[in-house]
Amino acid sequence: MRRFLIAATLCLAQPAFGQDYAEESLPDVNQETQAVALMDTLRCVVCQGQPISGSNADLARDMRRLVRERIAAGESPETVRAWLVSRYGQWVSLKPEVNELTAPLWLIPLIALGGAGLLYSRRFKRKKK
């Protein structure tokens, strides 16, 4: 019994050949594309400077497996992102949400563009006087 338990847990810990999606493309090309695009925009909580797609940390590997498995099970990338955000906070997503906290982030580029437009039109309007 004891031996059986250990053997069983070992099997669970290290899935057999061809099933570890931490380092393996999904068979469905569209799903794989979605998964990779999502992994490129999730931040590794260990190395912090890299997305999980480019990190060698164990936890990043585990997250890649989780992302592929959930996408393969039919979840949408944004559902998976929201689930991870509900665990690690906004920090884990490299795609900032649009909310009151990030309003300046999204508004300042628009204001800058508007300001540039204003400068441009003023420059040439004055001339006509």
């Binding site: 810990a13 899935p15 909580v45 497996r65």
Partner: peptide, 16 residues
């Protein structure tokens, strides 16, 4: 318990 492939750790929101 043994965590399998970090599933429990990620579910907890644990980073290390």
């Amino acid at each position: 318990g043994l965590d399998q492939g970090g599933r429990a750790q990620i579910a907890f929101g644990s980073a290390g």
